[in-house]
Write a protein that binds this DNA or RNA. Structure first.
Length: 935
DNA sequence: AAATTCACG
DNA sequence: GACGTACGTGAATTTC
C-alpha cells in the first residue's frame, strides 16, 4: 500500500454524531453495572463500528478511514447567524457523558478520530472529500445527512449505513431535484427547520428546485427575480434576498479548511488488542469483549460481576500522585503560560482558581491565578504580589519580581477561559467567574465541585473545599491562616511571598481537579445528573449576572430613617429606665431579664443551659398586657433591629463604583435547595410591619425605570396539594378560591359566606403548620390556644384531609428507609438524623416532611431563573433579586407590562415539561418606583 | 465562639 | 408516659 494518498486509494468518512444519535435512540437505556453510568449509546456505537469493520473486508475495502465529530457548539455559522441551530432540543442528559466515550471507542478501535474547533463535522468531511478527490482517490461518506449531499460526484458518494443504500448523483437528484452542484442553492431557498436556516418563506424543496432549474443558479435567480410571474414568490425573493444569501452561506460547507493532519494520517490500521480489550472491559461490554477477543485471538479479560460499593476506585482512575505542594510550578513568563494553555486545550478541561485581596468578589483585586490539568500537576501565575512584603514601614506599591504583566496573562488566558470546548472546573466558580468578568473575561463553560457535592450530598456535610478535601481525598489543605495570619495582623494575599503563594494556590487547583474527577462519575451513580445539569450548573451564570447588576439603594432615604429611629430609641430608652427605676443596657437580654423577673418580680422562668431568663418577643408580648416596660422594650427592639441591621448596615454595602448594593447568593447554602443571600442578606428586608416595610422605599429603580416584583401565590400549599393528592385542595386552587377560607369552611363547618377573619386566621395557621410538620405544641404556641385545643384542630384536619396524614407518614417512612427525601425534580435532601433517638428525631421528621415541599418550590423558581435571561433578552430589563418565591426586576418604564407578561409566563410554566402539576401555578405582579410600591 | 434575638419566605 | 418541638435562612449584639 502506498504511503501517500492518491489514485487507487479509497477514503471512508464516518459521520460520528449521526452514529452516536442512532446508537442512542436505537438502544434501550443500558447502564454500566458497576456504577450505573449510562452506556447504551457507546455500546451501540461500538457494535456499529465492529459491523462496519466486518463488512468492509473485500476488494472494495477502504484504504483510509476516519470518524469525524463535531467539537464545541459554536462555529463560524453562529457568527454569521446567531439563531443557527438555536431551536435544537437540548441533548438528553443520559447522552452527554457518552460523547467523549464514543471518541475513546473510536481510538480504541484504532480508527482515526478527528474534530476541529469552530467547524462542524460536515466541514471537515467536505474538506477531506475534496482533498481526496483532488488526489485522484475515491470517497465514501457514511451518512444519510442531506447537508452532505452537496459533496457527491466525481468519485464522491454517500452510503446510508442504516438502509445500506448508496447515494450517488441520481440519489441526490431524487432528493433535491437538482444535481449536487446546485444542492446548496435549493437548500438556501428552502431553508431548514432542523438547523433553523431561514431560507425563503413559503418556498420548499420542490419550488426551489423548479426555480433553480429554470434560472440555472441561485445568483441568476435573485438577479432576475423581477421576471418571476407569481407575485407572492417574486416579492419574497426580492424582499428576502439578504436572508436567502445568508442561508446559502449557512448551508455551504467549507471545503477548504486548514487541517492539522493529512489524508495519510487516516490510513486503515489494525486495532491493538490490548488497547481495545482494555476499553471494552472498562465499559463492561461482555458480549462484545468476548466476540472481539475470539476474533483477535487473545484471551478475553474477565469482567467482575459487580463492584462492591465504594470498595475500589473506578477502573478508569489511575493511582494519583500524592499532593505535594513542593512540585507545583511558578509561571512567570508568556512561554510557560502558553504551554499550560496548550495542555488545557489538549485535555479539554482545566481546574481554575483565583487568588484575590479579599472575599468580596465585587470589590477585591485579582492577585494571581492557578491552574491544574492533571492530578499532581498544577501551577500558579502570580500577577499582583507586592514587593517588600512584611516590611510595612517601608512598603511601597511596586510589584514583586517573578510576575508577568497582568494584561498579558489575561490576554493569553482569555481565549482558553472563554473557549466553549474547554471545561473550566472550579470550587465555588461563581466567585472566580465574577472576578474574571470584572477583568473582562467571561468564563464558560464551567463545572463546579461545590455544586456537585451539594447535588449529591445535601444534608450530609458541608461543601467547602477544606471539608471536601478531608472527606474525599483524605488530605488537609494548607490553611489560609498560615499565609495571612489572623485577627488584627491579618494581611491580604498580595502581600504573601510568591513562593508560599505558589504552594497554597496551586494546591487549591490540584484539589479541585481531583474532587471533580472523584465526583463526576458519582453524579450518575447517585442519580442527580439532571439536578446538577438543570438546577445547579446553569444557575451559576444567572446568579453571577444578578449579583453584578445589584439594586440601587438610596442612601439619603436610609440615612433619614436612621436619624428618626435613633431619636425614637433614645426617647424609649429614657422611659424604660424610668419604669425600671435604674439605668441599664436595654439591648442586653441578661440585664433585661434581671430587671423584669428579679427586680420587678414578674412571672417567667429561667431557660436553657446558661441559666439566663428568656426575653424573646413572645414572652414580652405576654408581659406587655400587664406592664408598660416590656411593651416599650418591644418597641425599642424593633427600632434597634431596623436601624442596626437595615438602615445603618445597608449603607455600608452600597458599592462605591456602582452606587448599588450587590448581594451574594449562596447556591449550596440551604439543604432544601433554596438559595440564601448574604453580604448583605436581601432576602429578609422587612415587610411584615408598617415601619419596617418603609425600608423598602430605599430600594429604587434608576431614572426612567421601575422595579417589578413577581411572586408565586401559595406555591408551597399548591405543591402539597399536588404531592399529597388532596382533591378538595386541588379543586379549590383550580377554582381560584381563597384556600385558607376554604380550609376553615371544611374544618369548622362554616359556610363560606359566614366566614370570619378569625376562623380564617386559625385555618391559615394550620395550613402553614402542615407544611412545617405540624405538632399540637407548635400550633398551640403559634395560635396562643391550649394545647389540647390545638391538637383537636389537627385531628379534625387529618380527618377531613386524610391524604395529608398519609403523605406525612409516607414521607417519614421513606426518610427512615433511605435516610433522605426527594423533591419532584429529583433533588436529594439527606436526613441522617432521622435515625436519632430523643428530641432530635422529632426535628428530623419535621424537616423531612417540609423538605420535599420547600425544595420543590425552590426547584421551580430555579428553573424559572435559568430560563429567564433568554426569555427577557429582547426587553430592556434585568433580573436583580430572588426572595424564595419572588423575583425582582428593573425595567424601562414603558416595557414594564411586557416584562410582566413574559416573566409571568416563564414562572407559571417553570415546572414543565418535567413535572405536570395537578394545580395551576399563579404569579402575582406589581410595579413601582421602589420595592415597597412594586411588592 | 456561642447564645440570643429577630428580619424574611 | 415523657421527652421538647413548628420548616428554612443571615446578621447584629451581648456575653463568656
Amino acid at each position: 500500500m502506498s504511503t501517500n494518498f492518491g489514485k487507487g486509494c479509497h477514503l471512508h468518512l464516518i459521520d460520528g454524531s449521526a452514529f452516536i444519535f442512532r446508537a442512542f435512540h436505537a438502544l434501550p437505556p443500558l447502564t454500566r453495572k458497576s456504577d450505573g453510568l449510562p452506556i447504551g449509546a457507546v455500546s451501540g456505537f461500538c457494535n456499529m463500528l465492529q459491523r462496519y469493520i466486518d463488512g468492509n473486508t473485500g476488494p472494495d475495502a477502504p484504504t483510509h478511514v476516519a470518524v469525524i465529530f463535531d467539537k464545541g457548539s459554536h462555529t463560524f455559522r453562529n457568527d454569521l447567524y446567531d439563531q443557527y441551530k438555536a431551536n435544537r432540543d437540548a441533548m438528553p442528559e443520559d447522552m452527554r457523558p457518552q460523547i467523549p466515550l464514543t471518541r475513546e471507542a473510536t481510538v480504541a478501535f484504532n480508527i482515526a478520530c478527528k474534530e476541529q474547533e469552530g467547524f462542524e463535522a460536515d466541514d471537515i468531511m467536505a474538506t477531506l472529500a475534496h482533498q481526496a478527490r483532488d488526489a485522484g482517490g475515491r470517497v465514501t461518506i457514511l451518512s444519510s445527512d442531506k447537508d452532505l449531499m452537496q459533496l457527491v460526484g466525481d468519485g464522491v458518494e454517500m452510503l446510508d449505513p442504516m438502509k445500506n443504500k448508496l447515494i450517488d448523483r441520481d440519489g441526490v437528484f431524487e432528493k433535491f431535484g437538482v444535481g449536487p452542484e446546485r444542492v446548496v442553492d435549493v437548500q438556501a431557498l428552502a431553508g431548514d427547520s432542523v438547523d433553523n436556516v431561514p431560507g425563503a418563506p413559503g418556498i420548499g424543496i420542490k419550488t426551489a428546485a423548479l426555480l433553480i432549474n429554470e434560472y440555472g443558479s441561485l445568483e441568476e435567480l435573485l438577479d432576475r427575480a423581477e421576471e418571476i410571474k407569481q407575485p407572492k414568490r417574486r416579492q419574497t425573493l426580492i424582499e428576502k434576498r439578504e436572508q436567502i444569501e445568508l442561508s446559502k452561506k449557512l448551508v455551504q460547507l467549507d471545503c477548504d479548511m486548514e487541517l492539522d493532519f493529512t489524508l495519510d494520517d487516516l490510513e486503515v490500521r489494525e486495532p491493538d488488542p490490548d488497547t481495545l480489550m482494555e476499553f471494552l472491559t472498562r465499559m463492561e461490554f461482555r458480549t462484545l469483549t468476548k466476540r472481539l477477543a475470539d476474533k483477535l485471538n487473545v484471551e478475553a479479560p474477565a469482567i467482575p460481576d459487580t463492584t462492591p460499593e465504594g470498595a475500589n476506585p473506578p477502573a478508569d482512575a489511575p493511582e494519583w500522585p500524592a499532593i505535594d505542594p513542593e512540585k507545583y510550578e511558578h509561571v512567570s513568563d508568556l512561554a510557560a503560560l502558553e504551554a499550560w494553555v496548550a495542555r488545557a486545550r489538549e485535555t479539554g478541561w482545566v481546574a481554575v482558581d483565583t487568588e484575590t485581596t479579599g472575599v468580596n468578589d465585587m470589590t477585591c483585586d485579582l492577585v494571581g491565578i492557578s491552574l491544574s490539568v492533571q492530578p499532581g500537576e498544577a501551577c500558579y501565575i502570580p500577577l499582583a504580589h507586592k514587593a517588600n512584603a512584611g516590611d510595612d514601614l517601608f512598603a511601597d506599591n511596586s510589584l514583586a519580581p517573578g510576575q508577568m504583566p497582568m494584561s498579558e496573562a489575561l490576554d493569553t488566558l482569555r481565549p482558553l477561559l472563554e473557549d466553549p470546548a474547554v471545561l473550566k472546573i472550579g470550587q465555588n466558580m461563581k466567585f472566580d467567574a465574577k472576578v474574571f468578568a470584572r477583568y473582562g473575561v467571561d468564563v464558560a463553560p464551567i463545572d463546579d465541585t461545590m455544586l456537585m457535592s451539594y447535588a449529591m450530598n445535601a444534608g450530609l456535610h458541608g461543601h467547602g473545599m477544606d471539608a471536601l478535601s478531608e472527606r474525599y481525598l483524605s488530605h488537609t489543605p494548607i490553611p489560609i491562616k498560615d499565609l495571612l495570619g489572623t485577627g488584627k495582623k491579618q494581611i491580604t494575599f498580595d502581600l504573601v511571598p510568591i513562593e508560599d503563594a505558589v504552594k497554597y494556590a496551586a494546591e487549591d487547583a490540584d484539589i479541585t481537579l481531583r474532587l471533580w474527577m472523584t465526583f463526576k462519575p458519582q453524579l450518575h451513580r447517585t442519580q442527580v445528573t439532571r439536578v446538577y445539569e438543570t438546577l445547579e450548573r446553569p444557575l451559576v451564570p444567572v446568579l453571577a449576572q444578578m449579583e453584578r447588576h445589584g439594586i440601587k439603594v438610596d442612601r439619603q432615604t436610609l440615612s433619614r430613617m436612621s436619624g428618626a429611629f435613633a431619636q425614637k430609641m433614645a426617647q424609649l430608652e429614657e422611659e424604660i429606665h424610668e419604669l425600671a427605676g435604674e439605668s441599664f443596657n436595654v439591648g442586653s437580654p441578661k440585664q433585661l431579664g434581671e430587671i423584669l423577673f428579679d427586680k420587678m418580680g414578674l412571672e417567667g422562668g429561667k431557660k436553657g443551659k446558661t441559666g439566663a431568663y428568656a426575653t424573646g418577643a413572645d414572652i414580652l408580648e405576654d408581659l406587655a398586657t400587664e406592664h408598660d416596660l416590656p411593651a416599650r422594650v418591644l418597641d425599642w427592639r424593633q427600632l434597634s433591629k431596623l436601624k442596626s441591621t437595615y438602615t445603618d448596615a445597608l449603607q455600608e454595602h452600597i458599592n462605591a463604583d456602582t452606587g448599588r448594593v450587590h448581594t451574594s447568593y449562596l447556591q449550596s447554602g440551604a439543604n432544601t435547595g433554596r438559595l440564601a443571600s448574604a453580604d448583605p442578606n436581601l432576602q429578609n428586608i422587612p415587610v411584615r410591619s408598617e415601619e419596617g416595610r418603609r425600608i423598602r422605599e430605599a430600594f429604587v429603580a434608576e431614572e426612567g425605570k421601575v422595579l417589578v416584583s413577581l411572586d408565586y401565590s401559595q406555591i408551597e400549599l399548591r405543591i402539597l396539594a399536588h404531592m399529597a393528592g388532596i382533591d378538595a385542595l386541588k379543586q379549590a386552587f383550580r377554582d381560584g378560591q381563597d384556600i385558607h377560607a376554604m380550609t376553615a369552611s371544611e374544618m369548622f363547618n362554616v359556610p363560606m359566606e359566614e366566614m370570619t377573619s378569625d376562623i380564617r386566621r386559625q385555618a391559615k395557621a394550620i395550613n402553614f403548620g402542615v407544611i412545617y410538620g405540624i405538632s399540637g405544641f407548635g400550633l398551640a404556641r403559634n395560635l396562643r390556644i391550649p394545647r389540647a385545643e390545638a391538637q383537636g384542630f389537627i385531628d379534625r384536619y387529618f380527618e377531613r384531609f386524610p391524604g395529608i396524614k398519609q403523605y406525612m407518614d409516607d414521607t417519614k417512612a421513606f426518610a427512615k428507609e433511605h435516610k433522605r427525601v426527594e423533591t419532584l425534580f429529583g433533588r436529594l435532601i439527606h436526613t441522617p438524623e432521622i435515625a436519632a433517638k430523643g428530641p432530635r428525631a422529632g426535628f428530623a421528621q419535621r424537616a423531612a416532611i417540609n423538605a420535599p415541599i420547600q425544595g420543590t418550590a425552590a426547584d421551580i423558581i430555579r428553573r424559572a431563573m435559568v430560563q429567564m435571561p433568554n426569555a427577557i433578552a429582547d426587553l430592556p430589563a434585568k433580573m436583580l433579586l430572588q426572595v424564595h418565591d419572588e423575583l425582582i426586576f428593573e425595567v424601562q418604564e414603558d416595557a414594564a407590562d411586557d416584562l410582566i407578561a413574559v416573566a409571568k409566563e416563564v414562572m407559571e410554566g417553570a415546572a414543565l415539561p418535567v413535572v405536570q402539576l395537578d394545580v395551576p401555578l399563579v404569579v402575582d405582579a406589581g410595579k413601582g418606583a421602589n420595592w415597597a410600591e412594586a411588592h
